[in-house]
């Protein structure tokens, strides 16, 4: 059984036990500019949910709505039954500590070493002894292959390494839901494949739910249980489901081009 831990607060349950995130009629935008209209979808516990879409279609924006950084123009987002845009105080903190986020730019704190960056969520949310926090932080960095860079500052490591360190920080508390914005962008194929394996393992062994934005075709097929594809033109979801099924059966030209690129254009001559 998968434990949906997000219900620990007083939030009312949301019917279907297996749904961790429910997005209802979400319209998002900045000022008068509308980016996506009337989105409806759910993310189920323990699945790897991938958000696809062209550059600038609003994937990062959607992710930031889901974690409550932006409030929707219309509609609502429930995480574990609680409305993120309205949650306050203890309820909000309760949700936040069960959610890990890796931002597209990494967002490591430049004045702290990698170890301190990864340790920070533990310091904020738990009362583990320092030795334990250091140990956990080192192990998380080891998971992304960076244990030897524990005492480096973010500015002293490469862009791809910063990204991996940011993933380690997002995983520090073994959150129930992990949001990753383009985790494998800027990584070599081998590191990227290792990362995919790690993502799969998080979902299978911890029952973690992952919401991932990615463009890497290989990653999509390696990790995704379900994808949605955002379309900039119609400002809506144009496809939803298992990526393999979509690739083989969906007849939206954009979806086909997106998911089949590897097979059509990249074939050796």
């Amino acid at each position: 059984m998968i434990v949906v831990d997000l219900n620990r607060g007083d939030a009312d349950p949301i019917g279907d036990d297996n749904v961790v995130i429910r997005v209802e009629g979400l319209t998002m935008g900045f000022g008068s500019m509308v980016i996506m209209e009337n989105l409806d979808f759910t993310v189920r516990a323990g699945e790897i949910f991938v958000i696809l879409g062209g550059s600038g279609s609003g994937k990062s924006t959607l992710l930031k709505h889901m974690i409550g950084l932006y409030s929707p123009v219309a509609g609502r987002i429930l995480i574990g039954g609680a409305d993120m845009a309205r949650a306050e105080g203890a309820e909000r903190e309760n949700i936040l500590r069960q959610v890990g986020v890796m931002y597209q730019m990494g967002a490591l704190f430049g004045s702290m070493s990698l170890l301190e960056n990864v340790r920070l969520p533990l310091e904020v949310h738990t009362d583990l002894p320092l030795e334990a926090m250091n140990r956990i932080a080192r192990a998380k960095l080891q998971l992304v292959g960076l244990a030897e860079y524990c005492d480096f500052m973010p500015a002293e490591i490469s862009g791809g390494m910063q990204k991996r360190a940011a993933i380690a920080r997002a995983m520090a508390l073994d959150p129930q839901v992990l949001f990753l914005d383009e985790p494998s962008a800027g990584l070599d194929p081998i590191t990227s494949a290792e990362l995919d394996q790690l993502i799969r393992r998080l979902a299978s062994s911890l029952g973690m739910t992952l919401v991932v934005v990615t463009h890497e075709l290989a990653s999509i097929f390696a990790i995704a249980d379900r994808v949605i594809m955002l379309d900039k033109e119609t400002r809506s979801i144009i496809a939803e489901g298992d990526p393999r099924v979509l690739r083989d059966t969906n007849d939206h030209p954009w979806v086909r081009r997106f998911l089949r690129r590897s097979e059509t254009e990249d074939l050796p001559a």
């Binding site: 080891q142 244990a147 005492d151 062994s205």
Partner: peptide
């Protein structure tokens, strides 16, 4: 369980890693 073994692995590995600095 296998899952617990999986979680223990990075701790055992991290112990032997030396700093790159």
């Amino acid at each position: 369980t296998g899952a617990i073994e999986g979680h223990l692995k990075p701790y055992r590995e991290a112990e032997t890693v030396v700093s790159a600095r």
